[in-house]
Design a protein around this nucleic acid. Structure first.
Lengths: 168, 168
DNA sequence: CTTATCATGTAAGCGGTTACATGATTAC
DNA sequence: GTAATCATGTAACCGCTTACATGATAAG
């Protein structure tokens, strides 16, 4: 699924602004998808042109007016089609593993630092996700709960793999 | 690291053709990087223009001539710089988790199929990687071994997470 | 007799990223 | 007084994917 479709998915539950869509993707989907304003705003414009969403503007002072997007019937239909289509392969891209693979060109202390840094990065993400999960718990559907669980387990497995290497 | 840099990394150990580079990335890096001919051939051309690689053509009959690429001193230097630079964040993109997240729009048997399909996809990748590992074992450096191990552990953790959901 | 392997490439275009621009308000 | 949050967007460009084109040889 591409950005446009993910946005439709979020809008199928509630009306949202470009800003809130961006931050929702960056928090709720942090462990399996990403977004930037440079993607979201043009995507919303394009979705509007497609007839999949409509906008209502809310006047504000001190800030740009809020543009609240709603999904249309066509939009719902389109998203429903997409969610029933075949799942695309997961993508894992790791610059860390690339560095490790070519580790014979590095000194031992550099490799140790590589591993320690990666451990810290993942620990941070895990901590964040676990604390988010507590906050989200009350409102989560089964599928959402499954996703978070999956994410946490992946992070933990990665930490384990990193720790084991240290004892060697 | 981008495609061009990864190619330089491979060339720093041995001379290779575009074809063999493509297939090496697709097998040895299968679990953390990907390549296509549409990326590799233009990248090699560009690396040549940069002065990071040189080519030697080997005449063949029945097939296009083999173009064997060697890394230059400049190329080695450039790759060495890149490998000492900061590691970029890992990227995990999962269309499967996206589907699960929006699972409330699906029937129970569709979700079961989603999970079972994902389980099979990952099991296939795990089997492939484990059998590859046996074949590679003799020639692997510590870092390469670490990478493969990491990959296998990730796949196993994902399988575990999928199996647990089934008992519920 | 069909599939996999070897071997080269191109061209269009997608789906983003990165960096920039603007600025009030609130919380610490 | 500094940082985070809210809130909009644009423009250039990147890096890659997808699909196509060609075709002999070997293996099963």
């Amino acid at each position: 699924m591409k950005g446009k479709e993910v946005i439709l998915g979020l809008l199928s539950k509630q009306n949202l602004t470009g800003y809130s869509i961006t931050s929702m993707i960056q928090t709720r989907f942090s462990y399996f998808f990403d977004a930037s304003t440079g993607m979201v705003y043009p995507a919303l414009k394009s979705l509007e042109k497609d007839g999949y969403v409509t906008v209502e503007e809310q006047v504000q002072h001190g800030k740009p007016n809020k543009k609240i997007y709603q999904i249309t019937e066509d939009g719902k239909k389109y998203f429903s089609e997409k969610i029933h289509e075949n799942v695309e392969d997961d993508i894992f891209k790791s610059d860390f593993l690339m560095h490790m693979y070519f580790g014979n060109m590095l000194e031992k202390d550099e490799i140790d630092k590589l591993i320690e840094d990666e451990r810290q990065r993942i620990q941070l993400k895990l901590d964040q996700l676990e604390s988010d999960r507590i906050e989200w718990k009350k409102y989560m559907t089964t599928g959402q709960d499954f996703s978070v669980d999956f994410g946490i387990k992946m992070y933990k497995a990665q930490l384990e793999a990193l720790k084991e290497s240290k004892t060697k």
